[in-house]
Amino acid sequence: MTLLVAASGALESVSFLGLERVFAGVMTSNLALLGMAVGRGKAVGVTAAVLALAGFGLGVLAGAWCTRGNAGAATHWPRSVLFVLAAEAVLLGVGALVWGLTGGVPGETTRYVMQFGAGLAMGAQSAAMVTAGHTAAPTTYLTGTLATYLVKGVHSGRQGVWVPLRFAGLVAGAAVSAALLKEARAWAALPPVALTLCALAVAGAPRAARTRRYRSVSRS
Rank of each mutant, 00 (worst) to 15 (best):
Ser15Val: 11
Leu92Ile: 04
His134Phe: 00
Cys198Ser: 14
Val22Thr: 14
Arg207Tyr: 03
Ala201Asn: 06
Phe56His: 06
Val163Glu: 00
Glu108Cys: 00
Leu170Met: 12
Arg219Trp: 03
Val98Asn: 02
Thr140Ala: 09
Thr145Met: 13
Val90Gly: 05
Pro191Ile: 13
Val22Asp: 03
Ser156Thr: 15
Met114Phe: 13
Leu91Gln: 01
Val81Ala: 09
Ala73Met: 12
Ala49Phe: 04
Ala188Ser: 12
Leu180Pro: 07
Ala7Ser: 13
Tyr141Asn: 14
Gly9Lys: 13
Ala37Ile: 10
Ala24Thr: 12
Val130Met: 06
Asn70Met: 07
Gly133His: 02
Pro192Ala: 00
Gly18Met: 07
Thr131Glu: 10
Gly39Ala: 09
Gln125Thr: 13
Leu195Phe: 02
Leu61Val: 15
Ala37Asn: 03
Ala64Phe: 09
Ala43Asn: 00
Phe16Ile: 14
Ser8Cys: 12
Thr143Ala: 10
Gly63Asn: 12
Arg158Thr: 14
Thr139Lys: 06
Ala199Trp: 03
Ala124Gln: 09
Gly41Thr: 06
Leu181Met: 05
Leu53Tyr: 05
Gly204Cys: 05
Arg213Tyr: 00
Ser13Glu: 02
Gly133Ile: 11
Gly157Pro: 04
Leu200Ile: 12
Ala124Tyr: 07
Pro192Met: 03
Pro191Gln: 05
Ala10Val: 10
Glu183Met: 11
Gly59Thr: 12
Glu108Tyr: 15
Ala32His: 00
Val193Ala: 06
Val46Trp: 08
Pro206Ser: 10
Ser80Tyr: 05
Leu120Tyr: 09
Ala205Pro: 00
Ala43His: 08
Val50Asn: 03
Ala121Phe: 08
Val26His: 07
Arg158Ile: 14
Arg219Met: 06
Val202Pro: 05
Ala10Met: 04
Pro206Tyr: 05
Ala37Phe: 04
Ser220Arg: 11
Ala49Ile: 14
Val171Leu: 15
Arg219Ile: 10
Ala205Thr: 14
Val26Tyr: 09
Leu3Gly: 04
Ala178Gly: 11
Val84Ser: 05
Cys198Pro: 00
Val154Thr: 15
Ser15Gln: 07
Ala96Thr: 09
Pro191Ser: 09
Leu92Cys: 01
Leu170Tyr: 02
Val151Arg: 14
Arg40Val: 07
Val38Gln: 02
Arg212Asp: 12
Ser126Tyr: 13
Trp99Thr: 04
Val154Trp: 06
Thr75Cys: 01
Cys198Asp: 01
Leu11Tyr: 08
Leu200Cys: 08
Lys182Thr: 15
Leu97Thr: 15
Ala86Gly: 15
Ala54Thr: 15
Glu88Gly: 12
Ser216Trp: 05
Arg79Met: 04
Leu33Val: 11
Asn30His: 02
Gln125Met: 11
Tyr214Asp: 08
Leu180Ile: 14
Trp65Asp: 11
Ala48Trp: 08
Ser80His: 07
Val151His: 12
Ala43Tyr: 11
Gly104Pro: 05
Ala62Tyr: 08
Ser15Phe: 07
Thr131Tyr: 04
Lys152Pro: 00
Val38Ile: 15
Gly35Asp: 08
Arg21Ser: 11
Ser156Asn: 13
Leu91His: 02
Arg40Ala: 12
Phe116Asn: 00
Gly173Val: 10
Thr110Gly: 00
Trp65Asn: 06
Ser216Cys: 05
Leu3Val: 10
Thr47Trp: 13
Gly25Val: 10
Pro106Ala: 04
Gly104Leu: 06
Leu82Met: 08
Leu91Pro: 01
Cys66Asp: 14
Val161Phe: 09
